[in-house]
Design a binder for these strands. Structure first.
Lengths: 110, 110
DNA sequence: CGACTGCATCACAAGATAGTAATGCAGTTG
DNA sequence: CAACTGCATTACTATCTTGTGATGCAGTCG
């Protein structure tokens, strides 16, 4: 966000990027891709998500630049676009951890 | 996300946090709060968002731990919960900037 | 205590999003 | 070239989200 003046269009674009992360199945996909590149059918196996559904999620992740695609014959390989994708997830998970930890502490204090 | 094994519940929780960021009006609210604490009516003025709507957005931000609330007499003051909130936004904005820059370059290359 | 103010909540309409079965299509194989 | 495979796309339904006007409620002030 920096200190630059933000326009409604920019807010919308940033929101769109965040929305790509804002779905459990998509997070799971990113999590699986963390290990290595996968084909769509591998992802179907790994995640248990239906093929059509998975394909749509992959399109969203791709159009937001979160994953990269590599076509090879009959197969399409997907992988994480860059390290920042993981950084985002880890940052959010860190927040969540601290949060639950503090909640535990609050309980303990009572 | 780290390397810990992720459960469906965790994915859902993380997704919920991301969803809090995934709305233009909420991003605008966070952006305004970046300067300083604001009351709800100040935020209505600053953002142009309707009072009821704004109030709901603030509840969401609060329940996800993105903002803090301080009641004082008739007024409710909201502020950013911590520095990480800005870090998230800046990280995402950075991605977006790079993305558009590369797109420009791609155009230029043609 | 009665009117007022700032904010939260409710109820509802409108729009967006996810899941699924069916279909399309490019690339491969016999 | 005909059948098959992996994936994308379409069409449709169910669910969730957002915006808004009305209402409720706690705190303040005359």
């Amino acid at each position: 966000m920096s200190l630059a003046r933000m326009t409604p269009e920019l807010f919308a674009l940033v929101a769109e990027r965040f929305r790509a992360f804002a779905e459990p199945n998509r997070l799971q996909i990113l999590h699986v891709l963390r290990l290595r590149e996968h084909t769509v059918s591998e992802l179907v196996e790994e995640t248990g998500i239906g093929q059509a559904n998975l394909s749509k999620h992959l399109q969203q992740l791709l159009s937001c630049g979160l994953v990269a695609r590599r076509k090879e014959g009959l197969y399409t390989h997907y992988s994480l676009a860059d390290r920042d994708v993981l950084k985002m997830c880890d940052l959010m998970c860190g927040r969540l951890e601290r949060e639950t930890k503090e909640r535990k502490k609050a309980f303990a204090a009572k």
